[in-house]
Nucleic acid binder design. Structure first.
Lengths: 241, 241
DNA sequence: TGCCGCGATCTGTGATCACAGTTAGACTGT
DNA sequence: ACAGTCTAACTGTGATCACAGATCGCGGCA
């Protein structure tokens, strides 16, 4: 092809140079995202089994990308493969639930603190927006549990992202991946918790504290939120052991 | 085969029942362990490149298990694949180093606290043992950096395991995987830090505080240790940006 | 000398095949 | 009626093949 446009641009034009390198997103990555969303939103119940081939067929891809995605989830114990070679969402014992909750209190509590200290302007704007979205769902006389779950997740992670510590956000995502199935699957089973639980109040306190730069207040609000949800789950008696 | 021993044991004997289900360890898992060890002990320098095929050949396995292991490490950013499809140990910018250090201070600091509170007898015994091992290496006139690195790691993780929170230990492993190449590669380059740095004193304080159940003291000792190592790394001026 | 083009080689990713191990169910012999 | 046996289908894991894209080196043109 001859050069029709400009006199020999050997250097890359600044207009092109500033678009940044486009990241390569593999099929396995996309399958992982898909499965992660299902787990975190509680659309897969604990004990739910799946097969690589059926997932591959459902998603219209080969078995290969599914293998990679599932392998990652198995590696961090968000899924498990039984000695029978069956893949399933892990069951949750009371002991494991309490362990995860303890770690969440520490890690997410710190994140809330940090978010209140070094809060980014752009994240703050999103915060109130997500809070309202959650409120709208909670007040809905016929609440869509899945939308409420999503709104709750987005509010929390807006706070976590405001820490400016992407590594920390990644860690918390891993925790939600493990606890999501229990937390949100039970929430969907009993949506009345949306109103009776203090979730909306905890969220209000949380957002207010972060906006005000009140680290201790933010931590307390978030801990209250986690503990409220945890005691609700424990009260349902669906945990093992 | 006829039954020579007992009258028709239709139930599984308790002697067999209590051995527990044996876990399936795949080749991919073993490759992952191998690579993880190399990263955490600083035997792979930042920027170091590798190819799936060469690793597979070195380890005497097919490319498949290597793919799985590398995919996991890439997923949590312990490795990265460039747009050129080249896999390498990520470079470390000053900003990223500080972010990782901030998260480590929070997470590992909490772990030290928790270890001092709920300390397990078995872990306590190991603690002093690992501390002595580290001391021995530090005092060695011709210290083997790799053994010192390993002793340091084992001491820290003995503390973390004493929390009784395996999830937390996993999180910290992920952090060490990311920061290990910088931390330990530089340590090997300048082993004099073993004596001049306050590492041995911090370790002494840490072990003493954990043994005494002094949560705040344990946290402080560990934070001092991390910050000491971090400021050493920053002073070497090998970080990017 | 400097620049461009072409081809051999190597890269990770995706698809397909092969296989050992497990499971479920029909069947058989007692 | 029941315990044991065998077969067919299905599981995840590992190996191999196929491929698009990137890199590097050699050669030729200006």
């Amino acid at each position: 092809m001859s050069n029709l446009s400009s006199p020999r641009p050997t250097k890359t034009p600044t207009a092109i140079a500033q678009i940044g390198r486009l990241e390569r997103v593999t099929l396995g990555e996309r399958v992982h995202t898909e499965l992660r969303e299902l787990l975190m939103s509680g659309e897969l119940a604990p004990g739910q089994r799946m097969s690589l081939r059926s997932v591959a067929e459902t998603l219209g891809v080969s078995m290969m990308p599914v293998r990679e995605a599932v392998a990652r989830l198995v590696a961090d114990q968000s899924l498990e493969v039984l000695p029978n070679r069956a893949v399933r969402v892990p069951l949750m014992t009371r002991a494991r639930f309490r362990e995860l909750t303890a770690v969440r209190l520490a890690v997410e509590g710190f994140a809330a603190e940090q978010a209140a200290r070094s809060r980014a302007e752009s994240d703050l704007a999103a915060l109130s927006q997500f809070e309202e979205a959650f409120l709208a769902e909670a007040r809905d006389p016929d609440p869509h549990a899945d939308r409420a779950v999503r709104a709750n997740k987005e509010l929390h992670f807006a706070v976590y992202r405001a820490t400016g510590l992407p590594t920390l956000v990644g860690i918390i995502e891993g925790l939600w991946l493990k606890i999501g199935p229990v937390l949100n699957f039970d929430l969907k089973a009993s949506p009345e918790r949306l109103r009776t639980g203090g979730a909306t109040e905890h969220h209000r306190h949380l957002v207010a504290a972060v906006n005000a730069g009140d680290a201790a207040g933010a931590r307390k609000a978030l801990i209250d939120d986690i503990e409220g949800a945890a005691s609700f789950i424990e009260s349902t008696g669906r945990l093992l052991d």
